[in-house]
Design a protein around this nucleic acid. Structure first.
Lengths: 335, 335
DNA sequence: GAGAATGGTTGAAGCGCTTCGAAAACATTG
DNA sequence: CAATGTTTTCGAAGCGCTTCAACCATTCTC
């Protein structure tokens, strides 16, 4: 293992000079700079991360807490995680992967040990046990998702309330008066995950405004469950002509069942999804959808962390505006 | 930030004693041990990771390189990643998330800097640029997947060759003589990812043995592509009665299209998938399948890393035996 | 009851780096 | 050319921990 001292000796300068060449925190003459850089290359020097962290009390690592549950759509999580890792690298940071299961102790451990300089937390619950620690703010943190009380917190998320409203607007604009909402797994609501409830809020409020009847049904994924759910819906509201789906694993079963029942999409019923574009495009009907900008969320989270680390960063909530793309699954209601 | 020295002072012992209490590397009297542990708790002490890494030249971190491509089934990747993180934590290690995109330089950076003590690499290609570095073996490494030359390497993977063979056996045993294989995205084959080719090997070899005709068609996911692929298959081999699918995003389109064409599963055609159990269970027909033991792979990879870190670990390839579960999508061929 | 073995504890060195204050080298000015 | 300013380089301290050699106090052995 090559050390700074060896590089210094090889280049005929002192250790501190090498350090300053590396960090650029002091001006170095062009000559020595090049000499040092050549030595670094020739010796294959890599600064020791531990020593660096110790001396500078910065680890150049940010921790990412991902949920380990699988009742939410996994590709979205993964896309966020990848975006976080990629963006962090672009800033010279590495990413430490933490599972949400460890909860608050993990937060304490990581911030306490200086393993990471900052933390990004995904899938926060409305009243999450980790919030007090993050608020205490020994280290900067950014949440992806929105808890109930965002005071002193920095959050990034899709504006699900607006997304819900947008869905109702779109369908109402097409003349739909009875809309069924196929929601996430009941477990998601029971956990009081923010996004699910906020979507519902947006849906309901706008439905009231626009005089639309709304029926909300959480649903686990899969065909059997969906079949039962769908039967109940048409039983209760036979006039239903519009569907809003916020559950990736319910999309395809819903479409298949509708087809099977002889209800054409979008002629007889319209289906609008809140899902990643990829899902909307790969479905058996190209779905009109409000997209989940996973990558954008991951990137923004990192950018905000960086801003906070450089002390210029402001807290507060940043909600991404939802975007609705009309594809082939929604159309005017037939009389 | 509380330091070891402060704990020592608080407990009325020397710093080294505290260190030994923490590491257990020397015997400590019960009395002082308890006194130290109380001080640690009272002061809320967390050892500084950087200082530890520096002094002991072990970071207690293992790096995990995940592919950033999305042409493979993401939930499997995620499940492996989570299993790795969870298992690593159980051994007192943290996980650093690296994207495959960074390639060999990332390997150099991480091993060179001592950021991680070991490395787990997912999605290796048959002739991967990272292999020479991993073989050089400054640090222990474990691959999830199998390159062409496994010499001096430690690998964990599903035995895809056996999986392929198993598929043919099962279908041949049911009387199927013409089998079509719906493969991964062509890009996967072009990249020469090991598992896809090995599966094909197993399929072909056993097909030859059992006198079964095999038609292999890579396929991107989605309905349109699948429709075209399926048409070509029945065009070329009208007698096809069995399908082996190794592409999660082709499963549902295939089932839907078969249904649409009036071919009943499993009465008219049998469909056998190589996919995670969850996919097999959530499909519109409960699929007979060879499961991808993602979690098991992640766990095993970590266990092997740990073994190597404790110097007792042996290299070599460990292949997990495939398991075929018969569900509702395969049956005897109809005359 | 002297000497050896054992268990418990300590002080000090050092891991490889950053960073501060100051020295050295050079350039600028009256 | 002495005095001053500026740029470049250096030495040394110290970050918080591990670990080695050494020490002291017991207990054991014959």
């Amino acid at each position: 293992m090559v050390t700074l001292a060896e590089v210094a000796q090889h280049a005929g300068v002192s250790a501190s000079t090498v350090s300053y060449v590396l960090s650029g925190k002091r001006s170095i003459s062009l000559g020595t700079k090049e000499r040092v850089e050549r030595s670094i290359r020739e010796l294959g020097y890599h600064p020791n991360a531990g020593a660096r962290a110790l001396a500078s009390s910065k680890s150049n690592v940010i921790a990412l807490m991902v949920p380990l549950r699988t009742d939410m759509y996994v590709p979205v999580m993964m896309e966020i995680a990848i975006a976080v890792a990629t963006t962090a690298r672009a800033h010279g940071y590495d990413v430490l992967l933490l599972t949400g299961e460890e909860g608050a102790p993990a937060v304490r451990r990581v911030t306490g040990s200086g393993l990471a300089d900052a933390m990004i937390v995904m899938d926060v619950e409305l009243d999450d046990e980790r919030l007090p620690l993050l608020r205490a703010g020994d280290r900067p943190s950014v949440l992806i998702g929105l808890p109930a009380d965002t005071d002193q917190l920095t959050c990034v998320d899709l504006d699900f309330t607006a997304a819900g409203a947008l869905c109702v607007e779109h369908l109402a604009g097409l003349g739909h008066r009875d809309i069924a909402v196929i929601g996430e797994d009941p477990a998601v609501y029971e956990r009081h995950t923010g996004f699910a409830e906020r979507t519902l809020d947006g849906l309901r409020t706008r439905a009231r405004d626009l005089d639309v009847r709304l029926l909300h049904r959480p649903s686990v994924g899969g065909y059997d469950a969906m079949a039962a759910t769908l039967a109940r819906i048409f039983d209760e509201r036979p006039a239903t002509t519009g569907f809003v789906v916020q559950n990736e694993s319910a999309v395809e079963p819903l479409l298949a069942l509708l087809r099977q029942q002889g209800r054409a999409v979008p002629e007889d019923v319209s289906v609008l999804a809140i899902c990643p574009d990829q899902v909307a495009l790969q479905a058996s009907v190209r779905l009109s959808s409000v997209s989940i900008p996973a990558e954008e969320m991951g990137r923004q989270a990192v950018e905000r962390v960086m801003a906070k680390l450089q002390a210029g960063g402001e807290g507060g909530v940043r909600l991404l505006a939802p975007e609705l793309t009309v594809r082939a699954s929604t159309g005017p209601v037939s009389r």
